[in-house]
Nucleic acid binder design. Structure first.
Lengths: 379, 379
DNA sequence: GCCGGTATTTATAACGTTTTAAATTGTTCC
DNA sequence: GGAACAATTTAAAACGTTATAAATACCGGC
């Protein structure tokens, strides 16, 4: 089970001749200079096959080959078969640049990266899901960071203005999000993580935060907590209202006391949340149940309460939104409701592809993911 | 400080006519149909200016304009000035597709995304940094996920084979990483986060994990801990050896007992680490000092120890690598040494650009980032 | 006023694809 | 045997840029 290592010598990465990283692309039609060449990876950079190559190989004209590959109707079945066969054999892949130049389609999806998404792999999970949806399509995923948090409308304007992508994905929407307004006005394909209050419908994938907050709060009350509270995201974001609404509904139904902290939110630095919770716990009428919109705030809450000598499960309970394996494995006493961000990304990807493909039915472009509630047996 | 909200009605996103997300790109030379048009964002999708536009406007030939914009030497100063002026005025931006088609350069950097990077914003921080380095260049950042963990050599082969990018960025290198071998063989520009043991040098940005582990271990010993241990990454990765080496050096120098768990690593699920720590703490001769390579493993360790009734700072200490604000703010008693991943990404970006630009001096393409040690005064 | 030479500009072709329009082949029918 | 027509295939042009090679303007010197 345990092993003692002898002190191993780390060979320093010796610095000798340095392989020129350039010198590619000299249109050598045969094989391009094979470098050291382990036999395995030798013939990689062979002459890149084009439509012309297939045309020469089959005897058809370039136009015919192009048509055959795009399965145009006027090509005979036999021709189509033969062309596809040869294309597959020589590993033909259409040149993105040429296609883009000719058609104006970029085959690019742009995902806007908010600095806030740095935390806890939110952005990464979403991207993984999106990439999964794009897997067997010609689409590439390019990430466009907005260096100024919140307002990446300039980045969007740039993408639209210069045709940098066929579609845009972004998160953290506000009720009258200027990004959504801009994209609707320009008729540019996009999908958001989160809804808006615009009267014109637009593609989105959202998590049902109302239900999350409602069920979470109910659970706290069912466990006998008499004063629930909720740590909300910044007020300007749409899903803040959904959370609040769900929380309030459960609270009203049960007729219990409650509290909504006003000067703290999920975007606050972790220590501020921790200190707030700790401070509040020291005053009278402190809450004994927490709905946490994220795992980090849940951890901050636990620490803050623990600073007052209060223990989770004994003096108070937490129900948190779970988006990774972090929280539940570290502190199993926190109850959670799961939001699958990889799946969310996947759905955003397919939704955007549908929108780009011309789908206009809002039914098919709007997804509200219901949380599945699986609380452990009452402990 | 606390505020009670009245139960707000959430207006459901009404579903009416749905704006066609397509119907772009009809080569309207003037302004393209202005949709609803808030006066602000109206003239966005104007006819995209090309070299031809500038040529017509200035009276020069297209070739001359191209040359002037690329600051070719044989263009007269006055011409260059005039062309730049007009280009700026009409907001000219060269067409990426045309440039790529003609030159073969893609102006694309590909970052490989390992599923393991999902945790704790590792990937996102790196990308943010890279994007920052690419900010004022024509380069775009495309993310290429490898769906099978660890071996994304196929993804790389695809990129190289089909000229999908000008350079590649990836992490988690192994001493004789097949990805590095492939790219060196093909003479393709890349930069890694982490070193290898190949005799041919290659561009990298790495964190000095030897020093990290050495200093962390020394700190534990200085605090009076008599049996340090270290939770290492998977053995196959290069930086595992660096960590181990640093740990062992400190241990040998001090002549203290130590222990290296063999069947647990940083990639293990959090609960496995927690359970392992807890189990071990229940046996004899348990370690009383932990060097943790990541924040998550540190949290797992705290919980595991806490399950045995052992408290951080009292019965044991932890020194962990810190890559976010999470850990220190949640549990300030953990001492940390910081690794700035955004900065790392930034350096990887500039390094790769240098490599693509033809730089071959290993001195300029290899960076080893020294941790700055700032431990609080002994408490 | 013409020469050689340099400085500057230009026309033309090409990158690999798709689109438009035209050409070729095959078939049926009188 | 050819007209009319459908089924296939094809040639040529275009997307916006850069590279090659050629043209033109400018200049001093004689």
């Amino acid at each position: 089970m345990f092993k003692t290592f002898s002190q191993t010598k780390i060979a320093p990465c010796s610095v000798a001749r340095y392989k020129d990283a350039q010198s590619q692309r000299s249109g050598n039609p045969v094989l391009a200079e094979t470098p050291k060449s382990t036999p395995v990876d030798a013939p990689l950079k062979a002459a890149k096959p084009t439509l012309r190559t297939i045309a020469d190989l089959t005897g058809f004209a370039v136009t015919t080959v192009s048509r055959a590959l795009s399965n145009a109707p006027q090509i005979s079945a036999e021709t189509r078969r033969r062309v596809h066969e040869v294309a597959a054999k020589i590993g033909y892949l259409p040149d993105r640049a040429a296609q883009r130049l000719k058609t104006g389609r970029t085959n690019v999806i742009s995902v806007l990266l908010d600095p806030h998404e740095e935390i806890l792999g939110y952005g990464t999970s979403l991207m993984l899901g999106i990439a999964n949806a794009l897997k067997d399509t010609p689409y590439h995923l390019i990430v466009t960071p907005s260096f100024v948090a919140g307002s990446n409308v300039d980045a969007i304007r740039h993408i639209v203005r210069n045709g940098m992508a066929d579609g845009i994905i972004f998160s953290r929407t506000e009720p009258f999000d200027p990004r959504v307004r801009l994209l609707l006005e320009q008729g540019f394909a996009f999908v958001t993580h989160g809804r808006t209050d615009f009267s014109t419908p637009h593609p989105y994938v959202d998590y049902d935060n109302f239900t999350f907050a409602y069920e979470a709060t109910k659970r706290l009350i069912a466990r006998g907590r008499s004063k629930p509270t909720i740590i909300l995201p910044p007020r300007r974001m749409t899903f803040c209202q959904h959370l609040q609404h769900g929380f309030m509904t459960a609270v009203r139904e049960a007729g219990v006391a409650y509290e909504i902290p006003d000067d703290i939110d999920l975007d606050c630095p972790v220590d501020e949340i921790r200190d707030f919770v700790s401070r509040r716990a020291g005053l009278t009428d402190a809450p004994d149940g927490f709905v946490c919109g994220g795992e980090v705030s849940a951890l901050a809450t636990i620490t803050g309460m623990s600073d007052r000598g209060l223990t989770l499960g004994a003096e108070y309970d937490i129900v948190a939104k779970q988006t990774s394996k972090l929280l539940v494995n570290i502190q199993p006493k926190v109850e959670t409701i799961y939001e699958d961000l990889v799946d969310t990304g996947f759905r955003m990807g397919t939704t955007l592809l549908a929108a780009i493909g011309g789908e206009t039915d809002p039914e098919k472009l709007q997804t509200l993911l219901k949380p599945t509630i699986v609380f452990p047996a009452r402990g």
